Amino acid sequence: MKKIILVLMLVLSSFSFSKQIKVGLILAMGGLGDKSFNDSAYAGLLKAKEDFNIDIKYVEPNTWMEDAFYLEEYSDNGFDLIIATSYTAQSAMEDISSKFPNTKYAIVDTVSKEGGNIASLVFDEPEGSFLVGAIAAQMSKSNKVGFIGAIDIPLINRFKDGYEQGAKYINPNIKVLSSYVGGDAPFNDPIKGKEHTLSLITQDVDVVYHASGNTGTGIFQGIKEKGIYGIGVDCDQDNIVKGQVLTSMLKNVNNAVYKVIEDTVNGNFKGKVYTFGLKENGVGTTNFIYTKDIIGEKNINKINAIKNDIINNKIKVKK
């Protein structure tokens, strides 16, 4: 009997030491419901919770200044992994992570110092944007396509530059007109998004691609109203205006969030740069569910060929 009790005690003690991993997610400005960047990150968190039985918590900051507050709070409360989806959290994360060397951190869209306890999750936006730029050029009748960015910063311009390269690959004479939302809420200002869209349309732009988070909802209102084409970003936004949103440049933040959680759970976390491009399924296009017939099989085959050529280094995308 004593042996049985001892065995039971050993079994129970082993369960008590099986610690449930705690993961905290700090979303970017705009929060959930953006049908874009934040929704994708959250989807990755939920999938990881289902697959790995982790304990999760997320927060939607009202301002960029709150990043440091939540990083400190999660660190103080013993979270194993803390993920920030906004590049604005980099400085605060580098500072706070040095105070909590046993806590793991991950940041999206910016590169932190390597070799520590921060994983940098970055995407090859130019590769994915090259593909949608090629589609825009295929579908433009005016030989003028547009890009609307939230703000004029290197990260947003990675979308623009890839888009322009792809458009000019198809049509070297095409013009790419760019516009930036700016203001106090550049990633969450649908009214300004629509205004910028209508302004581009007055300049004969007939396809508009955006990298502006929830501001894109206003951009899509503009393309619907004026009957031109749009291109979504980050998540599959094709169903927002069916038949007019040609495709979306998928930025699979969900895959990146899932990957860093999986590595943490399996003890494989590394303080390094993780890059997600076409080859890693980090970026790409949608499956053209609503626009397959509109774009046409010939054009879609051309896009698939371009994708393969980029992956195989036959086409060099400037970054």
Results as ranks from 00 to 15, higher is better:
residue 203 Q to W: 07
residue 85 T to E: 07
residue 80 D to G: 01
residue 145 V to L: 05
residue 51 D to S: 15
residue 204 D to I: 07
residue 309 D to G: 03
residue 32 L to K: 13
residue 60 E to K: 07
residue 246 L to G: 00
residue 77 N to W: 05
residue 317 V to Y: 01
residue 226 K to D: 10
residue 317 V to T: 00
residue 100 F to R: 08
residue 164 E to T: 03
residue 219 I to D: 07
residue 93 M to H: 06
residue 308 N to E: 10
residue 123 F to G: 10
residue 123 F to P: 06
residue 139 M to V: 10
residue 276 F to R: 05
residue 187 F to L: 13
residue 255 N to L: 10
residue 45 L to N: 04
residue 229 Y to I: 07
residue 143 N to C: 12
residue 49 K to V: 15
residue 96 I to M: 01
residue 186 P to S: 01
residue 198 L to D: 07
residue 136 A to W: 02
residue 29 M to Q: 14
residue 191 I to G: 12
residue 129 S to T: 04
residue 259 K to D: 12
residue 159 F to H: 03
residue 101 P to K: 03
residue 54 I to P: 05
residue 282 G to F: 01
residue 158 R to T: 14
residue 242 K to Q: 12
residue 72 E to Q: 14
residue 139 M to G: 05
residue 86 S to P: 05
residue 13 S to D: 14
residue 184 D to V: 06
residue 225 E to G: 07
residue 280 E to A: 06
residue 188 N to S: 15
residue 35 K to V: 14
residue 181 V to M: 11
residue 100 F to L: 06
residue 201 I to T: 00
residue 110 T to V: 15
residue 96 I to G: 01
residue 30 G to V: 02
residue 114 E to N: 14
residue 107 I to V: 10
residue 186 P to H: 00
residue 120 S to N: 04
residue 158 R to I: 12
residue 61 P to N: 05
residue 158 R to G: 13
residue 307 K to C: 08
residue 73 E to N: 13
residue 144 K to T: 13
residue 270 K to D: 12
residue 72 E to I: 08
residue 250 L to E: 10
residue 114 E to F: 11
residue 67 D to G: 10
residue 218 G to M: 05
residue 83 I to G: 05
residue 225 E to D: 13
residue 315 I to G: 03
residue 211 A to N: 04
residue 144 K to N: 13
residue 49 K to N: 08
residue 180 Y to Q: 00
residue 78 G to A: 04
residue 233 V to D: 07
residue 37 F to H: 04
residue 157 N to D: 09
residue 67 D to M: 15
residue 261 I to M: 06
residue 292 K to D: 14
residue 112 S to V: 03
residue 3 K to A: 15
residue 21 I to A: 08
residue 20 Q to W: 14
residue 63 T to I: 08
residue 261 I to V: 01
residue 285 T to H: 06
residue 179 S to M: 11
residue 31 G to N: 01
residue 83 I to P: 01
residue 35 K to Y: 13
